[in-house]
Amino acid sequence: MLTLRCPACGVMADETELAPGGEAHLTREGPGSTDEAFEAYLFLRKNPRGVHFERWRHAMGCGKWFHAARCTVTLEVFGTYPAQTSGPPEEILAAIEARRPGWQG
C-alpha cells in the first residue's frame, strides 16, 4: 500500500484516494518538434527499476496535482513536492541521494 503526503493540503493520502498521472517532468513537444521527439513525448517512458518521479492527483481530497519521488522496487517514498515545478527540488534529490547513493549513474 502506497501512502503519499499531499503537499497541497498536508493529508497523508492513501493510494486509493489518489489518481495516478504517470511519469513526471516530461517535456511537452508540440508543433515544430521533430517526429522522433513527439513520438518520445507521447509514448516513450523510462519505466525504471528504482527511483522514479511521478505525478499524482489528490482526486478524492483537495483535487490538486502534485509530484512524488519513490522507488518502484521497494515502494519507498523519498518525498512529495508541489506540481508547480519542472524538476525535482534540491531537498528531494538530497533525500534520494542519502538512501540510494549514486542512483543517477
Binding site: 493529508v11 492513501d14 486509493t16 484516494e17 482526486a59 478524492m60 481530497g61 483537495c62
Partner: peptide, 10 residues
Amino acid sequence: LRRTRLAQVA
C-alpha cells in the same frame, strides 16, 4: 474536516 473516500465514492 477531511475530504476522502467513502467506500467507492468521494
